[in-house]
């Protein structure tokens, strides 16, 4: 059941974005920014976490989930450290994703060569 939910929810989020891309000609870079920002807003108003608890990877794998975890980090840090936590939580919560992408990305540049598109 978890798999079905992940498939359908994740798929539907992608469908919404596909429709948006087809209609607005928004470049992928803007789409990604939009997703993260919207994700953190939905997290802050308390919608995204319950949704993610229900949908699992269908909600956490899309970049909306990345935005939500940024917010979760900020919120948690405010609780622990007060004001300074606002500056701390975002990177703490997203550390694995960002470090992972940068480190693997760098390693990728060491291993792979540019290739022609076919």
């Amino acid at each position: 059941m978890d798999y079905v939910k992940a498939f359908v929810v994740g798929g539907l989020i992608c469908v919404v974005i596909q429709i948006l891309m087809d209609n607005t000609k928004l470049m992928p870079g803007r789409i990604m920014v939009l997703l993260v920002v919207v994700g953190s807003i939905l997290g802050a108003v308390g919608v995204y976490q319950p949704f993610a608890d229900w949908a699992g990877a269908g909600a956490t794998v899309p970049l909306l989930g990345f935005g939500n975890s940024l917010w979760k980090g900020v919120w948690k840090s405010i609780g622990e450290d007060g004001f300074i936590g606002i500056f701390k939580g975002g990177f703490t919560a997203s550390s694995v994703g960002i470090s992972g992408a940068l480190i693997f990305g760098y390693l990728g540049s060491v291993i792979f060569k540019p290739r022609m598109k076919s």
Binding site: G10, I13, C14, I17, P28, I31, M32, L35, V61, P62, L63, L64, G65, F66, G97, G100, A101, F104, G105
Partner: peptide, 8 residues
């Protein structure tokens, strides 16, 4: 593009 794999 939307999943974290697109970001990577």
């Amino acid at each position: 593009l939307v999943p974290i794999t697109g970001f990577a």
